[in-house]
């Protein structure tokens, strides 16, 4: 089967959709937080911690509990991040990177503590095909719903105002800090669910398993011009690149492994460079409240 035939097959499309899920969930969360004015570099840590707690949950009570625990894990990281950057107004980029390092170190430590291994957890119940498609459907529904919410509801208006003109929003008597809290918590829940997918898709946790997906998801937010549907579309592009990577790894052994693994990162670099000029970030992005 040639590469073109592979790409046009149903199996490839299904695979691309599956690869897209964690990117899309994280990017949707990232879109919300960034529209509210909070930098979303901490998505990486939310994904990773979500994957860890989801594995714990699935080991205790099956994949459904795992998904729920993934959300809780993402929420926990989001709450810590918020406390630091929204409440205490610390530098968002620096603290997001630190949070990611914190989660990386913490999950490694907990991996040893809980399962006595430095590299991976034992196998836990994963998603069946029903669960898999439930995730894909959930991501699609969430993308549409959040797009409508951001564009057409009062809540969406407040969200956008918090990211564009927080001072004006505050002068209307709206608690901007609370709007940002809500947006970041939502991003934590969504990224945590994305992390749960990572763990439940392969049936276990392994060290640093988010491998930059949170950063790629943020690149999708930028490439999608801070719109839920745009970000999802960018994630689909990364999903196709990811599925291509998997296929190339499985089939064409003549292509070097290292170069094939670079594919998603190269696509991200190109995507974020080609649209960055035309896109305008929320005006107050990254600025702490006065």
């Amino acid at each position: 089967m040639t590469l073109i035939e592979t790409i046009l097959s149903v199996g490839f499309v299904a695979q691309a959709l599956r690869v897209t899920v964690p990117y899309a969930l994280a990017a949707l969360g990232g879109t919300l937080a960034e529209r509210a004015g909070v930098v979303s570099l901490a998505l990486e840590g939310m994904l990773l911690f979500g994957a860890f707690t989801a594995t714990l949950g699935s080991a205790l009570g099956g994949p459904a509990l795992g998904a729920l625990c993934g959300i809780v894990g993402g929420l926990l990281v989001a709450a810590v991040y918020e406390l630091i950057v929204v409440r205490w107004r610390a530098d968002q980029v620096v603290c997001a990177i630190a949070i990611n390092l914190l989660v990386l170190g913490l999950t490694r430590t907990l991996l040893v503590l809980v399962w006595g291994s430095a590299s991976s957890s034992p196998r836990v119940p994963g998603l069946g095909s029903t669960g898999t498609w439930a995730f894909v459907a959930a991501a699609a529904v969430l993308a549409l719903a959040l797009s409508e919410l951001v564009r057409r509801t009062p809540w969406g208006l407040r969200l956008r105002a918090a990211g564009e003109r927080p001072d004006a929003l505050a002068s209307l008597g709206v608690d901007v800090e609370r709007v940002r809290w809500g947006a970041v918590l939502a991003s934590g829940a969504l990224a945590g669910l994305g992390g749960a997918w990572l763990a439940l898709d392969v049936g276990g946790f392994s060290d640093a398993m988010s491998s930059g997906r949170g950063y790629i998801a943020l690149a999708a937010v930028v490439s999608g011009k801070w719109r839920p549907l745009g970000a999802t579309a960018a994630c689909l592009l990364f999903g196709v690149a990811g599925a291509l990577e998997l296929n190339l790894q499985a089939e064409a052994t003549s292509l070097p492994r290292e170069l094939v693994q670079m594919l998603p990162y190269v696509v991200t670099l190109i995507a974020v460079s080609s649209v960055a000029r035309g896109a305008r970030a929320p005006s107050a992005l990254g600025q702490p409240l006065g």
Binding site: I84, W88, A90, I97, L101, G105, R108, T109
Partner: peptide, 18 residues
């Protein structure tokens, strides 16, 4: 696990930023 040092590093950075 020596990764506890990573946790310390992250905590130091966060406290400094705050």
């Amino acid at each position: 696990p020596r990764e506890i040092v990573d946790v310390m590093l992250a905590v130091i950075v966060i406290v400094l930023a705050v």
